[in-house]
């Protein structure tokens, strides 16, 4: 019979610019399971960490947007592959963190993998569906194409810490945006584990940045940050949206409001999220000899 062995606990850090730093503040917070028992310590990100994440996202975004849609699709599919490969680990994390049954957790991981595959397939079709050639009344060729909005701040859903997270991050990056994600405050572990998946999935560093911490502390910083182009309020606490939206107006951010009650993340989505985080660019050119 094997001797009992002391488990090695994992330290969870932030994911910024493709690296895994600790919070510059040196702070961390205790992540508890559904019954209140301690699960892990997560880094408690500061305003400065968030700022670094925005810088990293801005730096990565241009190259990511310039990559071919085909390549972005490949990368997203690779993320799906890697997630599938770590299926059991994520099931454990959800069972421990959210208190799901094994079957529920397994279904959430399946759903997350499938969602990634769904968006992977969208990356090189979205422009065809969202774009158009416009029959203007004159000798001009005129076309409209969707382009990424830029850097999107994402408050990840609080309850659905993996499927909800994947459902809001995948549409942001599928179209060429970069994301700064504030993980579910109570259940940050799946997001931080996902960061490891992303880091090993050919996704360029900085395209997705994940910070853990107090949503109430980080959200206003993200909302007011003038180098953030859009904001997804999925994980905003009820009652804070008005303040966040108002702060976001300072640089006319596109703000995707949170729904009450939150959406059923297991339902098949529409392209609407991709549409929301893209800008339509219209180009005119004369037609002549």
């Amino acid at each position: 019979m094997a001797e009992s062995r002391l488990a090695v606990r994992k330290t969870y850090k932030l994911y910024i610019g493709g690296a895994f730093p600790r919070s510059e503040s040196g702070r961390s917070y205790l992540v508890a399971g559904p019954e209140g028992h301690p699960l892990a310590n997560a880094a408690l990100a500061s305003r400065k960490d968030l700022r670094e994440a925005v810088v990293a996202a801005r730096k990565a975004q241009r190259g990511w947007a310039a990559a071919t849609a085909y390549l972005r699709g490949q990368v997203l599919y690779r993320v799906a592959e890697m997630l599938e490969g770590r299926h059991a680990q994520f099931v454990d994390a959800l069972v421990a963190g959210e208190g799901l049954t094994g079957a529920e957790a397994s279904s959430a991981v399946d759903g997350s993998v499938d969602r990634l595959v769904w968006y992977a397939g969208w990356s090189d079709k979205f422009a065809q569906v969202a774009g158009s050639s416009n029959p203007v009344a004159g000798p001009y060729f005129n076309f409209s194409i969707p382009e990424p909005t830029g850097v999107v701040g994402v408050l990840a859903p609080q309850a659905s810490s993996l499927l909800g997270l994947v459902s809001v991050v995948a549409p942001v990056i599928a179209t060429g945006n970069a994301a700064v994600v504030v993980a579910s405050e109570a259940h940050p572990v799946p997001a931080l584990e996902l960061a490891e998946v992303l880091a090993t999935s050919d996704l360029p560093g900085g395209v997705v940045n994940v910070v853990s911490g107090r949503t109430a502390e980080l959200a206003p910083v993200l909302a007011a940050h003038r180098d953030v182009d859009a904001l997804d309020l999925a994980g905003a606490a009820e009652g804070t949206e008005a303040e966040l939206e108002a702060a976001a107006a300072d640089n006319v951010k596109r703000v995707l409001r949170s729904r009450r009650p939150g959406p059923d993340w297991s339902a098949e989505p529409s392209p609407a999220r991709m549409l929301f985080f893209t800008e339509i660019k219209t180009v005119w050119h004369p037609v002549g000899v």
């Binding site: 203007v136 219209t282 050119h285």
Partner: peptide, 17 residues
């Protein structure tokens, strides 16, 4: 920019976003 005019400028059309 939302509208890019190449070799023209300030053209508008109802079919053009």
């Amino acid at each position: 920019a939302g509208v890019v005019w190449a070799n023209t400028f300030n053209r508008f059309d109802p079919s053009s976003p």
